[in-house]
Design a protein around this nucleic acid. Structure first.
Lengths: 245, 245
DNA sequence: TAAAAAATCACAAAAACAACTATATTCCGT
DNA sequence: ACGGAATATAGTTGTTTTTGTGATTTTTTA
Protein backbone atom coordinates (compact mmCIF):
# COMPACT_ATOMS: atom_id res chain seq x y z
CA UNK A 1 0.00 0.00 0.00
CA UNK A 2 2.83 2.34 0.83
CA UNK A 3 4.65 1.68 -2.39
CA UNK A 4 1.44 2.32 -4.31
CA UNK A 5 0.11 5.36 -2.49
CA UNK A 6 3.06 6.78 -0.58
CA UNK A 7 1.14 6.75 2.69
CA UNK A 8 -1.58 4.87 4.58
CA UNK A 9 -4.03 5.66 7.33
CA UNK A 10 -3.85 3.67 10.50
CA UNK A 11 -7.58 3.06 10.42
CA UNK A 12 -7.38 1.73 6.92
CA UNK A 13 -4.73 -0.76 7.95
CA UNK A 14 -6.68 -1.79 11.00
CA UNK A 15 -9.71 -2.43 8.85
CA UNK A 16 -7.85 -4.11 6.01
CA UNK A 17 -6.15 -6.66 8.22
CA UNK A 18 -9.02 -6.79 10.71
CA UNK A 19 -6.87 -6.31 13.76
CA UNK A 20 -6.96 -3.66 16.44
CA UNK A 21 -5.35 -0.27 16.05
CA UNK A 22 -3.03 -1.09 18.89
CA UNK A 23 -1.58 -3.96 16.91
CA UNK A 24 -1.12 -1.75 13.90
CA UNK A 25 0.66 0.77 16.08
CA UNK A 26 3.01 -1.84 17.37
CA UNK A 27 3.75 -3.28 13.97
CA UNK A 28 4.35 0.13 12.47
CA UNK A 29 6.77 0.84 15.29
CA UNK A 30 8.71 -2.26 14.35
CA UNK A 31 8.73 -1.38 10.69
CA UNK A 32 9.85 2.12 11.50
CA UNK A 33 12.62 0.67 13.60
CA UNK A 34 13.65 -1.39 10.60
CA UNK A 35 13.76 1.77 8.54
CA UNK A 36 11.03 0.74 6.13
CA UNK A 37 8.65 3.60 6.79
CA UNK A 38 8.03 6.68 8.86
CA UNK A 39 5.18 6.93 11.34
CA UNK A 40 3.12 10.06 11.17
CA UNK A 41 0.05 11.02 13.11
CA UNK A 42 -2.82 8.88 11.92
CA UNK A 43 -0.77 6.48 9.86
CA UNK A 44 2.53 5.99 8.10
CA UNK A 45 4.36 7.34 5.09
CA UNK A 46 7.26 6.41 2.90
CA UNK A 47 8.08 9.93 1.75
CA UNK A 48 11.62 10.86 2.74
CA UNK A 49 12.28 13.32 5.58
CA UNK A 50 15.47 14.72 7.03
CA UNK A 51 16.26 11.54 8.91
CA UNK A 52 14.45 9.06 6.80
CA UNK A 53 15.07 7.85 3.28
CA UNK A 54 12.51 5.63 1.61
CA UNK A 55 13.18 2.15 0.33
CA UNK A 56 14.75 1.96 -3.11
CA UNK A 57 11.85 -0.10 -4.40
CA UNK A 58 9.65 2.93 -3.87
CA UNK A 59 12.13 5.48 -5.19
CA UNK A 60 12.73 3.33 -8.23
CA UNK A 61 9.17 3.91 -9.40
CA UNK A 62 9.21 7.62 -9.05
CA UNK A 63 10.05 10.19 -11.65
CA UNK A 64 11.46 7.82 -14.19
CA UNK A 65 11.44 10.49 -16.84
CA UNK A 66 13.40 13.00 -14.80
CA UNK A 67 15.97 10.40 -13.91
CA UNK A 68 16.37 9.32 -17.48
CA UNK A 69 16.90 12.89 -18.63
CA UNK A 70 19.50 13.65 -16.02
CA UNK A 71 21.25 10.35 -16.61
CA UNK A 72 21.38 10.94 -20.34
CA UNK A 73 22.91 14.36 -19.86
CA UNK A 74 25.46 12.89 -17.48
CA UNK A 75 26.29 10.23 -20.02
CA UNK A 76 27.77 12.98 -22.23
CA UNK A 77 30.65 13.25 -19.81
CA UNK A 78 31.71 9.65 -20.27
CA UNK A 79 34.55 8.95 -22.68
CA UNK A 80 34.86 5.46 -24.11
CA UNK A 81 37.80 3.65 -22.62
CA UNK A 82 37.69 5.45 -19.31
CA UNK A 83 36.99 4.27 -15.79
CA UNK A 84 33.67 5.36 -14.32
CA UNK A 85 32.30 5.21 -10.78
CA UNK A 86 28.58 4.94 -10.22
CA UNK A 87 27.20 5.34 -6.71
CA UNK A 88 24.03 4.01 -5.11
CA UNK A 89 20.55 5.24 -5.88
CA UNK A 90 17.94 4.71 -8.51
CA UNK A 91 19.02 7.59 -10.72
CA UNK A 92 22.52 6.19 -10.71
CA UNK A 93 21.05 2.83 -11.68
CA UNK A 94 19.47 4.42 -14.74
CA UNK A 95 22.79 5.92 -15.70
CA UNK A 96 24.49 2.59 -15.09
CA UNK A 97 22.30 0.85 -17.60
CA UNK A 98 23.04 3.55 -20.17
CA UNK A 99 26.77 3.08 -19.86
CA UNK A 100 26.73 0.30 -22.42
CA UNK A 101 26.38 3.05 -25.01
CA UNK A 102 29.85 4.32 -24.20
CA UNK A 103 31.66 1.00 -24.45
CA UNK A 104 34.38 0.02 -23.82
CA UNK A 105 34.42 1.04 -20.17
CA UNK A 106 35.57 0.03 -16.74
CA UNK A 107 32.75 0.56 -14.26
CA UNK A 108 33.22 0.64 -10.51
CA UNK A 109 30.05 0.53 -8.43
CA UNK A 110 28.51 -0.41 -5.11
CA UNK A 111 25.05 -0.27 -6.67
CA UNK A 112 23.52 -3.71 -6.98
CA UNK A 113 21.18 -2.70 -9.77
CA UNK A 114 24.13 -1.51 -11.83
CA UNK A 115 25.96 -4.77 -11.24
CA UNK A 116 22.90 -6.69 -12.39
CA UNK A 117 22.59 -4.57 -15.49
CA UNK A 118 26.22 -4.61 -16.59
CA UNK A 119 27.62 -7.89 -15.42
CA UNK A 120 27.15 -9.77 -18.63
CA UNK A 121 27.77 -6.93 -21.06
CA UNK A 122 30.69 -7.32 -23.37
CA UNK A 123 33.05 -4.39 -23.39
CA UNK A 124 32.29 -3.57 -19.77
CA UNK A 125 34.81 -4.45 -17.12
CA UNK A 126 32.75 -4.48 -13.97
CA UNK A 127 34.41 -3.91 -10.65
CA UNK A 128 31.95 -4.49 -7.87
CA UNK A 129 32.51 -2.92 -4.51
CA UNK A 130 31.92 -5.23 -1.60
CA UNK A 131 30.70 -4.41 1.84
CA UNK A 132 27.62 -4.88 3.93
CA UNK A 133 24.53 -5.04 1.78
CA UNK A 134 21.79 -2.56 2.53
CA UNK A 135 18.42 -3.58 1.22
CA UNK A 136 17.18 -0.07 1.70
CA UNK A 137 19.69 1.36 -0.71
CA UNK A 138 20.19 -1.80 -2.73
CA UNK A 139 23.93 -1.49 -2.52
CA UNK A 140 27.04 -2.20 -0.50
CA UNK A 141 28.45 0.03 2.22
CA UNK A 142 30.78 0.08 5.17
CA UNK A 143 34.48 -0.18 5.88
CA UNK A 144 35.01 -2.87 3.30
CA UNK A 145 33.53 -0.65 0.61
CA UNK A 146 35.65 2.32 1.53
CA UNK A 147 38.87 0.36 1.85
CA UNK A 148 38.27 -1.26 -1.53
CA UNK A 149 37.83 2.13 -3.11
CA UNK A 150 41.18 3.35 -1.89
CA UNK A 151 42.90 0.62 -3.87
CA UNK A 152 41.37 2.00 -7.06
CA UNK A 153 41.20 5.16 -9.08
CA UNK A 154 38.81 6.47 -11.70
CA UNK A 155 38.41 9.13 -14.32
CA UNK A 156 34.96 10.25 -13.30
CA UNK A 157 32.53 9.63 -10.46
CA UNK A 158 28.78 10.05 -10.75
CA UNK A 159 27.30 10.94 -7.39
CA UNK A 160 23.63 11.45 -6.65
CA UNK A 161 22.09 13.17 -3.68
CA UNK A 162 18.64 13.51 -2.13
CA UNK A 163 19.17 16.97 -0.62
CA UNK A 164 21.00 20.17 -1.52
CA UNK A 165 20.84 23.21 0.70
CA UNK A 166 22.74 26.38 -0.16
CA UNK A 167 26.01 25.03 -1.57
CA UNK A 168 26.14 21.76 0.34
CA UNK A 169 24.70 18.37 -0.43
CA UNK A 170 23.37 16.18 2.34
CA UNK A 171 22.35 12.62 3.06
CA UNK A 172 20.57 11.09 6.05
CA UNK A 173 22.83 8.10 6.24
CA UNK A 174 26.32 8.17 7.58
CA UNK A 175 27.59 5.08 5.77
CA UNK A 176 26.24 6.29 2.45
CA UNK A 177 27.97 9.63 2.89
CA UNK A 178 31.29 7.99 3.57
CA UNK A 179 31.01 5.78 0.50
CA UNK A 180 30.22 8.74 -1.73
CA UNK A 181 33.08 10.75 -0.27
CA UNK A 182 35.51 7.92 -0.85
CA UNK A 183 34.37 7.69 -4.45
CA UNK A 184 34.96 11.38 -4.96
CA UNK A 185 38.41 11.18 -3.45
CA UNK A 186 39.68 8.66 -5.96
CA UNK A 187 38.20 10.27 -9.06
CA UNK A 188 39.76 12.91 -11.27
CA UNK A 189 36.41 14.41 -12.12
CA UNK A 190 33.15 14.40 -10.17
CA UNK A 191 29.63 14.86 -11.43
CA UNK A 192 26.64 15.45 -9.17
CA UNK A 193 23.22 14.33 -10.32
CA UNK A 194 20.26 15.87 -8.57
CA UNK A 195 16.59 16.46 -9.36
CA UNK A 196 15.56 20.11 -9.20
CA UNK A 197 13.10 19.41 -6.36
CA UNK A 198 15.94 18.31 -4.17
CA UNK A 199 17.26 21.84 -3.85
CA UNK A 200 16.40 23.65 -0.65
CA UNK A 201 16.27 20.45 1.35
CA UNK A 202 18.73 19.19 3.86
CA UNK A 203 19.44 16.06 5.86
CA UNK A 204 21.41 14.98 8.86
CA UNK A 205 24.88 14.51 7.37
CA UNK A 206 26.74 16.90 5.10
CA UNK A 207 28.16 15.06 2.11
CA UNK A 208 30.09 17.52 -0.04
CA UNK A 209 30.33 21.11 -1.17
CA UNK A 210 28.92 21.72 -4.62
CA UNK A 211 32.13 23.48 -5.66
CA UNK A 212 33.92 20.13 -5.42
CA UNK A 213 32.05 18.95 -8.48
CA UNK A 214 33.13 19.53 -12.05
CA UNK A 215 29.53 19.33 -13.21
CA UNK A 216 26.14 19.43 -11.58
CA UNK A 217 23.39 17.95 -13.70
CA UNK A 218 19.73 18.58 -12.96
CA UNK A 219 16.46 18.54 -14.85
CA UNK A 220 15.22 22.10 -14.33
CA UNK A 221 16.09 25.30 -12.56
CA UNK A 222 15.36 25.15 -8.86
CA UNK A 223 13.52 27.99 -7.10
CA UNK A 224 14.76 31.57 -7.36
CA UNK A 225 16.20 31.57 -3.84
CA UNK A 226 18.36 28.53 -4.54
CA UNK A 227 19.44 29.91 -7.91
CA UNK A 228 20.66 33.10 -6.33
CA UNK A 229 22.69 31.27 -3.72
CA UNK A 230 24.27 29.18 -6.42
CA UNK A 231 25.05 32.20 -8.58
CA UNK A 232 26.67 33.96 -5.63
CA UNK A 233 28.89 30.95 -5.10
CA UNK A 234 29.79 30.87 -8.77
CA UNK A 235 28.24 27.49 -9.40
CA UNK A 236 26.75 26.63 -12.78
CA UNK A 237 24.15 23.97 -13.31
CA UNK A 238 23.82 21.81 -16.37
CA UNK A 239 20.13 21.58 -17.17
CA UNK A 240 19.18 18.35 -18.90
CA UNK A 241 16.85 19.36 -21.69
CA UNK A 242 13.51 17.77 -22.36
CA UNK A 243 13.63 14.50 -24.20
CA UNK A 244 15.61 15.91 -27.07
CA UNK A 245 17.87 13.17 -28.39
CA UNK B 1 -11.70 -24.75 2.15
CA UNK B 2 -8.87 -22.42 1.23
CA UNK B 3 -9.73 -22.51 -2.42
CA UNK B 4 -13.37 -21.81 -1.63
CA UNK B 5 -13.00 -19.13 1.02
CA UNK B 6 -9.45 -17.85 0.67
CA UNK B 7 -8.75 -18.41 4.33
CA UNK B 8 -9.62 -20.71 7.20
CA UNK B 9 -9.62 -20.41 10.97
CA UNK B 10 -7.51 -22.79 12.94
CA UNK B 11 -10.40 -23.53 15.28
CA UNK B 12 -12.64 -24.41 12.36
CA UNK B 13 -10.09 -26.91 11.08
CA UNK B 14 -9.62 -28.39 14.51
CA UNK B 15 -13.36 -28.88 14.82
CA UNK B 16 -13.90 -30.10 11.28
CA UNK B 17 -11.32 -32.84 11.51
CA UNK B 18 -11.87 -33.36 15.23
CA UNK B 19 -8.22 -33.23 16.13
CA UNK B 20 -6.37 -30.96 18.51
CA UNK B 21 -5.30 -27.45 17.57
CA UNK B 22 -1.72 -28.51 18.05
CA UNK B 23 -2.07 -31.05 15.28
CA UNK B 24 -3.55 -28.46 12.98
CA UNK B 25 -0.65 -26.19 13.80
CA UNK B 26 1.86 -28.83 12.87
CA UNK B 27 0.12 -29.76 9.67
CA UNK B 28 -0.22 -26.15 8.63
CA UNK B 29 3.48 -25.70 9.29
CA UNK B 30 4.22 -28.54 6.91
CA UNK B 31 1.92 -27.19 4.25
CA UNK B 32 3.45 -23.79 4.62
CA UNK B 33 6.88 -25.32 4.23
CA UNK B 34 5.68 -26.94 1.02
CA UNK B 35 4.55 -23.55 -0.18
CA UNK B 36 0.87 -24.39 -0.39
CA UNK B 37 -0.43 -21.81 2.02
CA UNK B 38 0.57 -19.08 4.40
CA UNK B 39 0.03 -19.23 8.13
CA UNK B 40 -1.46 -16.22 9.79
CA UNK B 41 -2.47 -15.74 13.38
CA UNK B 42 -5.58 -17.79 14.02
CA UNK B 43 -5.49 -19.76 10.80
CA UNK B 44 -4.14 -19.88 7.27
CA UNK B 45 -4.64 -18.10 3.96
CA UNK B 46 -3.70 -18.39 0.32
CA UNK B 47 -3.60 -14.63 -0.24
CA UNK B 48 -0.17 -13.67 -1.49
CA UNK B 49 1.91 -11.79 1.08
CA UNK B 50 4.31 -9.00 0.26
CA UNK B 51 7.51 -10.80 1.13
CA UNK B 52 6.25 -14.10 -0.05
CA UNK B 53 6.93 -13.83 -3.75
CA UNK B 54 10.66 -14.48 -3.65
CA UNK B 55 10.10 -17.96 -2.39
CA UNK B 56 13.33 -19.63 -1.43
CA UNK B 57 11.77 -23.05 -1.20
CA UNK B 58 11.20 -23.08 -4.93
CA UNK B 59 14.48 -21.47 -5.70
CA UNK B 60 16.22 -24.41 -4.21
CA UNK B 61 14.71 -26.74 -6.78
CA UNK B 62 16.94 -25.39 -9.47
CA UNK B 63 20.28 -27.13 -9.52
CA UNK B 64 20.87 -30.81 -9.96
CA UNK B 65 19.87 -33.41 -7.49
CA UNK B 66 23.48 -34.07 -6.60
CA UNK B 67 24.17 -30.45 -5.80
CA UNK B 68 21.09 -30.23 -3.67
CA UNK B 69 22.02 -33.28 -1.70
CA UNK B 70 25.55 -32.15 -1.02
CA UNK B 71 24.37 -28.68 -0.13
CA UNK B 72 21.80 -30.00 2.28
CA UNK B 73 24.37 -32.14 4.02
CA UNK B 74 26.70 -29.17 4.23
CA UNK B 75 23.92 -27.11 5.74
CA UNK B 76 24.05 -29.34 8.81
CA UNK B 77 27.34 -27.69 9.72
CA UNK B 78 25.84 -24.23 9.94
CA UNK B 79 24.90 -22.93 13.36
CA UNK B 80 22.36 -20.14 13.57
CA UNK B 81 24.01 -16.88 14.52
CA UNK B 82 27.36 -17.70 12.98
CA UNK B 83 29.28 -16.17 10.10
CA UNK B 84 29.46 -18.25 6.95
CA UNK B 85 31.53 -17.88 3.80
CA UNK B 86 30.21 -19.19 0.50
CA UNK B 87 32.51 -19.32 -2.49
CA UNK B 88 31.76 -19.20 -6.22
CA UNK B 89 30.14 -22.01 -8.18
CA UNK B 90 26.66 -23.33 -8.74
CA UNK B 91 26.75 -25.87 -5.96
CA UNK B 92 27.69 -23.09 -3.58
CA UNK B 93 24.77 -21.11 -4.96
CA UNK B 94 22.39 -23.90 -4.04
CA UNK B 95 23.79 -23.94 -0.54
CA UNK B 96 23.52 -20.17 -0.39
CA UNK B 97 19.81 -20.27 -1.05
CA UNK B 98 19.38 -22.86 1.67
CA UNK B 99 21.08 -20.71 4.27
CA UNK B 100 17.82 -18.93 5.04
CA UNK B 101 16.87 -22.05 6.93
CA UNK B 102 19.62 -21.40 9.46
CA UNK B 103 18.75 -17.79 10.16
CA UNK B 104 19.99 -15.58 11.68
CA UNK B 105 23.31 -15.59 9.85
CA UNK B 106 26.03 -13.37 8.51
CA UNK B 107 26.95 -14.52 5.02
CA UNK B 108 30.11 -13.47 3.23
CA UNK B 109 30.29 -14.30 -0.47
CA UNK B 110 31.77 -13.37 -3.82
CA UNK B 111 29.09 -15.42 -5.55
CA UNK B 112 26.65 -13.22 -7.41
CA UNK B 113 23.89 -15.81 -7.35
CA UNK B 114 24.11 -16.01 -3.59
CA UNK B 115 23.91 -12.25 -3.31
CA UNK B 116 20.82 -12.24 -5.46
CA UNK B 117 19.22 -14.96 -3.39
CA UNK B 118 19.94 -13.56 0.04
CA UNK B 119 20.00 -9.83 -0.34
CA UNK B 120 16.42 -9.21 0.71
CA UNK B 121 16.05 -11.93 3.26
CA UNK B 122 15.47 -10.74 6.76
CA UNK B 123 17.74 -12.27 9.33
CA UNK B 124 20.60 -12.47 6.87
CA UNK B 125 23.40 -9.94 7.05
CA UNK B 126 24.93 -10.10 3.61
CA UNK B 127 28.51 -9.04 3.14
CA UNK B 128 29.33 -8.97 -0.52
CA UNK B 129 32.91 -9.28 -1.66
CA UNK B 130 33.88 -6.85 -4.33
CA UNK B 131 36.40 -7.29 -7.09
CA UNK B 132 36.46 -7.75 -10.81
CA UNK B 133 33.35 -9.50 -12.01
CA UNK B 134 33.84 -12.70 -13.94
CA UNK B 135 30.86 -13.75 -16.00
CA UNK B 136 32.39 -17.16 -16.44
CA UNK B 137 32.19 -17.85 -12.72
CA UNK B 138 29.39 -15.38 -11.96
CA UNK B 139 31.35 -13.86 -9.11
CA UNK B 140 33.95 -11.37 -8.04
CA UNK B 141 37.68 -12.01 -7.97
CA UNK B 142 41.04 -10.28 -7.86
CA UNK B 143 43.08 -8.24 -5.45
CA UNK B 144 40.10 -6.31 -4.17
CA UNK B 145 38.34 -9.53 -3.24
CA UNK B 146 41.32 -10.91 -1.40
CA UNK B 147 42.10 -7.69 0.44
CA UNK B 148 38.48 -7.41 1.53
CA UNK B 149 38.58 -10.90 2.91
CA UNK B 150 41.54 -10.14 5.12
CA UNK B 151 39.52 -7.50 6.93
CA UNK B 152 36.99 -10.16 7.91
CA UNK B 153 36.75 -13.43 9.72
CA UNK B 154 34.24 -16.27 9.69
CA UNK B 155 33.20 -19.36 11.56
CA UNK B 156 32.98 -21.64 8.58
CA UNK B 157 33.85 -21.50 4.88
CA UNK B 158 32.17 -23.62 2.23
CA UNK B 159 34.53 -24.25 -0.64
CA UNK B 160 33.71 -26.15 -3.80
CA UNK B 161 36.15 -27.63 -6.28
CA UNK B 162 36.01 -29.10 -9.76
CA UNK B 163 38.94 -31.47 -9.34
CA UNK B 164 40.47 -33.62 -6.63
CA UNK B 165 43.49 -35.79 -7.25
CA UNK B 166 45.05 -37.88 -4.50
CA UNK B 167 44.78 -35.58 -1.48
CA UNK B 168 44.86 -32.25 -3.27
CA UNK B 169 42.13 -30.15 -4.82
CA UNK B 170 42.75 -28.18 -7.99
CA UNK B 171 41.28 -25.39 -10.05
CA UNK B 172 42.12 -24.16 -13.54
CA UNK B 173 42.00 -20.52 -12.63
CA UNK B 174 44.59 -18.68 -10.66
CA UNK B 175 42.34 -15.90 -9.42
CA UNK B 176 39.70 -18.34 -8.25
CA UNK B 177 42.27 -20.33 -6.34
CA UNK B 178 43.53 -17.25 -4.56
CA UNK B 179 40.03 -16.23 -3.55
CA UNK B 180 39.27 -19.67 -2.17
CA UNK B 181 42.55 -19.78 -0.29
CA UNK B 182 41.90 -16.39 1.26
CA UNK B 183 38.48 -17.57 2.37
CA UNK B 184 39.98 -20.60 4.03
CA UNK B 185 42.57 -18.53 5.81
CA UNK B 186 40.07 -16.39 7.62
CA UNK B 187 37.71 -19.19 8.63
CA UNK B 188 37.84 -21.28 11.77
CA UNK B 189 36.39 -24.29 10.03
CA UNK B 190 36.47 -25.28 6.37
CA UNK B 191 34.15 -27.56 4.48
CA UNK B 192 34.86 -28.86 0.99
CA UNK B 193 31.95 -29.69 -1.28
CA UNK B 194 32.72 -31.94 -4.21
CA UNK B 195 30.75 -34.30 -6.44
CA UNK B 196 32.06 -37.86 -6.45
CA UNK B 197 32.87 -37.71 -10.16
CA UNK B 198 35.36 -34.97 -9.50
CA UNK B 199 37.78 -37.33 -7.79
CA UNK B 200 40.70 -38.50 -9.83
CA UNK B 201 40.85 -35.31 -11.84
CA UNK B 202 43.30 -32.49 -11.65
CA UNK B 203 43.85 -29.01 -13.03
CA UNK B 204 46.60 -26.45 -13.44
CA UNK B 205 46.64 -24.82 -10.03
CA UNK B 206 46.72 -26.62 -6.72
CA UNK B 207 44.17 -25.13 -4.35
CA UNK B 208 44.42 -26.93 -1.01
CA UNK B 209 45.23 -30.18 0.68
CA UNK B 210 42.20 -32.15 1.72
CA UNK B 211 43.57 -32.46 5.24
CA UNK B 212 43.06 -28.73 5.65
CA UNK B 213 39.32 -29.27 5.68
CA UNK B 214 37.29 -30.14 8.73
CA UNK B 215 34.69 -31.87 6.57
CA UNK B 216 34.52 -33.07 3.00
CA UNK B 217 31.00 -33.56 1.72
CA UNK B 218 30.25 -35.56 -1.40
CA UNK B 219 27.31 -37.47 -2.85
CA UNK B 220 28.78 -40.95 -3.23
CA UNK B 221 31.96 -42.89 -2.78
CA UNK B 222 34.49 -42.19 -5.51
CA UNK B 223 36.31 -45.05 -7.24
CA UNK B 224 38.23 -47.66 -5.26
CA UNK B 225 41.62 -46.16 -6.14
CA UNK B 226 40.65 -42.75 -4.80
CA UNK B 227 39.11 -44.25 -1.70
CA UNK B 228 42.30 -46.05 -0.89
CA UNK B 229 44.39 -42.94 -1.26
CA UNK B 230 42.05 -41.08 1.02
CA UNK B 231 42.06 -43.83 3.60
CA UNK B 232 45.85 -43.92 3.60
CA UNK B 233 45.90 -40.21 4.29
CA UNK B 234 43.38 -40.61 7.10
CA UNK B 235 40.70 -38.54 5.38
CA UNK B 236 37.04 -39.29 5.97
CA UNK B 237 34.32 -38.28 3.57
CA UNK B 238 30.82 -37.28 4.54
CA UNK B 239 28.46 -38.95 2.12
CA UNK B 240 25.24 -37.01 1.58
CA UNK B 241 22.48 -39.57 1.65
CA UNK B 242 19.77 -39.88 -0.93
CA UNK B 243 16.85 -37.54 -0.59
CA UNK B 244 16.23 -38.52 2.97
CA UNK B 245 14.45 -35.73 4.85
C1' DT C 1 -8.71 26.71 26.29
C1' DA C 2 -11.84 23.00 25.91
C1' DA C 3 -13.07 19.23 23.04
C1' DA C 4 -11.60 15.73 19.98
C1' DA C 5 -8.46 12.68 18.05
C1' DA C 6 -4.62 9.97 18.30
C1' DA C 7 -1.02 7.67 20.68
C1' DT C 8 0.52 5.16 24.70
C1' DC C 9 0.32 2.21 28.74
C1' DA C 10 -0.82 -1.72 31.50
C1' DC C 11 -2.97 -5.76 32.03
C1' DA C 12 -5.99 -9.66 30.67
C1' DA C 13 -6.88 -12.98 27.08
C1' DA C 14 -5.83 -15.59 23.14
C1' DA C 15 -2.86 -17.87 20.22
C1' DA C 16 1.42 -20.01 19.07
C1' DC C 17 5.07 -22.72 20.35
C1' DA C 18 8.06 -26.28 22.70
C1' DA C 19 8.79 -30.35 25.22
C1' DC C 20 7.16 -34.44 26.68
C1' DT C 21 3.92 -38.54 26.79
C1' DA C 22 0.90 -41.70 24.72
C1' DT C 23 -0.76 -44.20 20.93
C1' DA C 24 -0.81 -45.93 16.49
C1' DT C 25 1.65 -47.63 12.33
C1' DT C 26 5.29 -49.59 9.75
C1' DC C 27 9.09 -52.53 9.20
C1' DC C 28 11.79 -56.46 10.05
C1' DG C 29 13.35 -61.06 11.15
C1' DT C 30 11.76 -65.30 12.54
C1' DA D 1 1.54 -64.46 10.49
C1' DC D 2 3.59 -62.97 14.69
C1' DG D 3 6.12 -60.18 18.14
C1' DG D 4 8.69 -56.41 18.94
C1' DA D 5 11.62 -52.54 17.71
C1' DA D 6 11.61 -48.34 15.21
C1' DT D 7 9.10 -44.72 13.49
C1' DA D 8 5.48 -41.64 12.86
C1' DT D 9 1.51 -39.31 14.56
C1' DA D 10 -1.52 -37.17 17.94
C1' DG D 11 -2.41 -35.27 22.49
C1' DT D 12 -1.16 -32.77 26.97
C1' DT D 13 0.75 -29.49 29.56
C1' DG D 14 3.25 -25.44 30.52
C1' DT D 15 5.71 -21.37 28.65
C1' DT D 16 6.29 -17.60 25.59
C1' DT D 17 4.62 -14.42 22.38
C1' DT D 18 1.08 -11.72 20.37
C1' DT D 19 -3.24 -9.29 20.53
C1' DG D 20 -7.24 -6.69 22.42
C1' DT D 21 -9.39 -3.62 25.77
C1' DG D 22 -10.08 0.30 28.33
C1' DA D 23 -7.96 3.77 31.08
C1' DT D 24 -4.57 7.56 30.64
C1' DT D 25 -1.64 10.84 28.50
C1' DT D 26 -0.31 13.58 24.65
C1' DT D 27 -1.19 16.15 20.56
C1' DT D 28 -4.16 18.54 17.45
C1' DT D 29 -8.15 21.26 16.23
C1' DA D 30 -11.78 24.50 16.69
Amino acid sequence: MLVRDGSVALDALSEHFSVSKMTIHRDLDDLEQAGLLRKVRGGATIEPGTQFESDFRFRERQGGDVKRRIARAALELVEPGSTVIVNDGSMAAVLGAMLVEARPLTVITNNFAVMEALRNERGITLIGLGGTYSSKYNGFFGVVTEESLFRLRADIAFISTPAVSRTTSYHMDDAVVRAKQAMMKISDRKCLMVGHQRFGRSALHAMADLRDFDAIVTDAEPGAASMEELRDAGITLTIAKDKAE
